[in-house]
């Protein structure tokens, strides 16, 4: 079977990103899964850490692991990952490369497609093998259409939308074969990273893209201080926090929390819209949620057209009562 390469994110501390399971299980449906990561030499020089990484990736389905050591990880944008993927793809004559559809993942995918003369499919919900071609399903225009696209040119480079489902590995290899390589970065055409400021996500708050529940606030939350009510309900529900563009523009929430046409697309089991009118561009990012709840003072707000449970009311009255009711149930249980 042909090799399918996945780009795995490994933190400087050696932690494997939680998107690895989804990528490796998709790779197993298309061929022999290979995990590739660009890491600093502190990791490749640490034999215990390398053993732990290969064991972990093996249990997720990887048959081979390429750890590519580069002093440019975290220093030169994209370049070490690009070198690592290109090297592994060429060595193994891989027929496909799978990456996470994050900002970084798709940019690396685009560059790799140019380098390898491959074909690019972005933001796939699912992938499958169909005779000798790879077919990907996409959800477009905010979920209004489902489109199947096929790749005929090889290799196929695909980015996968982060799933909300738990991934169970298809095959398990207790320990994957490890290959350690070094890269020599000559002539890197990339931006240089000078500093990094991590976003202060709330303690143990789930990641917006893969979250099972999302609570979003809009302009109706009135101020940055009052937007805290969105965070409180999210905490009560174990949900991620989202925002409308108006709330982001007003400075109530970080830009990375924007849900919609030009923000993140989410498809959680539960989506709660607080003080959001439901403009078409907002709906484009959340209308495939299984259950939608909306609270808005305006009975004619378009968000009610797609809400499974709508409340015409003031968020500052309804939400505290809801939080109290959830707490009461939790303590009764």
């Amino acid at each position: 079977m042909s090799h399918i390469i996945t780009l795995i994110d490994i933190t400087p501390a050696g932690e494997i990103a939680n998107t690895a399971a989804q990528l490796l299980s998709a790779a197993a449906r298309l061929g022999t899964p290979v995990a590739v990561a660009a890491v600093r030499a502190e990791i490749t020089n640490n034999r215990q850490l390398v053993a732990r990484i290969s064991e972990h990736l093996g249990t997720l389905g990887a048959e081979q692991v390429y750890l590519v050591a580069s002093e440019h990880v975290g220093v030169i944008m994209h370049w070490p990952q690009l070198e690592a993927l290109a090297t592994a793809a060429t060595t193994l004559a891989a027929s496909g490369v799978l990456l996470c559809n994050s900002i970084e993942g798709r940019e690396i995918a685009g560059r790799l497609a140019v380098r390898l003369g491959g074909t690019l499919l972005v933001d796939a919900l699912d992938v499958r093998q169909d005779n000798d071609r790879i077919v990907a399903t996409h959800s477009i225009f905010g979920g209004s259409y489902l489109v199947d696209a096929a790749v005929t040119g090889k290799p196929a480079i695909l980015t996968l939308r982060q799933s909300t489902a738990d991934e169970t590995p298809v095959v398990q290899h207790p320990v994957a074969t490890i290959n350690i390589l070094d890269t020599d970065v000559a002539g890197a055409h990339s931006a240089v990273i000078e500093a990094f400021h991590a976003v202060e996500a709330g303690a143990d708050r789930p990641d917006l893209r893969g979250a099972r529940a999302v609570v979003s606030g809009g302009r109706g939350m009135q101020s940055r201080e009052q937007f805290a009510l969105v965070e409180q309900l999210a905490a009560a529900l174990g949900a991620a926090v989202g925002a409308s563009r108006a709330a982001v523009d007003a400075g109530f929430a970080e830009q990375t929390t924007q849900v919609g046409q030009t923000g993140v697309t989410v498809s959680p089991e539960l989506y709660v819209a607080l003080g959001i009118s439901g403009a078409i561009q907002h709906r484009a990012g959340m209308q495939t949620a299984s259950t939608i709840v909306a609270i808005n003072t305006d009975a004619n707000a378009p968000i009610f057209d797609i809400a499974d449970f709508g409340i015409v009311g003031d968020v500052f009255a309804v939400v505290p009562q809801l939080i109290a009711a959830i707490a009461a149930r939790d303590s009764a249980a």
Binding site: A299, V318, Q321, L322
Partner: peptide, 14 residues
């Protein structure tokens, strides 16, 4: 998608 239940808050909507 179709609209579902819609209620007007009478003090107990939460």
């Amino acid at each position: 998608r179709a609209a579902g239940i819609k209620i007007v808050d009478a003090g107990d909507a939460g």
